[in-house]
């Protein structure tokens, strides 16, 4: 007997998307498999690395610790949704690029989502607040110094544009 499938509707990056998933489908896998959005990375699948962080109704959450069916009807923003409609990079993305805050890029989608939410809630964070805000994300290439710099730089860019 096949596993029961649930029809779900998610608003992903502003677009209404439908998928049929078994109850056990993780949101991370649903985004990557059913919806073809492979920007959300999967590192550990137990909540430790933060690579799979996406925004759920605006708040950063682990997509590997969320079932897709649980968030039926909700809004998701993935790294693909951070840039403008014309593909222009968001201030956070530009700052990461400018400050060399990425190397292989595996951890980057998670950092970008966490940092985007952090700066929305707190447009000019202190060093400590930045570190706390990204404390749930692990990176293995660049070290964290440039990532912290990039978040401050993004705050500047956003301030200039406001």
């Amino acid at each position: 007997m096949g596993e029961a499938l649930h029809e779900i509707t998610l608003t992903v990056n502003g677009v209404l998307r439908e998928a049929k998933v078994p109850g056990r489908r993780l949101l991370s896998d649903c985004l990557r498999r059913e919806l073809g959005l492979t920007g959300t990375h999967v590192g550990c699948e137990h909540g430790v690395c933060g690579c799979c962080t996406v925004l759920l109704d605006g708040a950063p959450v682990r997509s590997c610790l969320t079932f897709a069916v649980s968030v039926d009807g909700h809004e998701i923003t993935t790294v693909e949704g951070l840039s403008g409609p014309d593909g222009s990079l968001s201030p956070v993305q530009r700052a990461f690029s400018e400050c060399h805050a990425l190397q292989c890029g595996f951890c980057t989608p998670g950092f970008l989502c966490s940092a985007t939410a952090l700066l929305r809630d707190n447009p000019s964070p202190t060093d400590d607040e930045v570190v706390e805000g990204i404390s749930g994300n692990l990176g293995r290439c660049t070290g964290y110094q440039n990532i912290v710099k990039a978040v401050h730089r993004a705050a500047e860019l956003m301030g200039d544009e406001a």
Binding site: G47, P60, R62, L65, T66, S114, G136
Partner: peptide, 9 residues
Amino acid sequence: VAHPVIRNR
């Protein structure tokens, strides 16, 4: 308790 992202859920 954990990190802010975990505490959101």
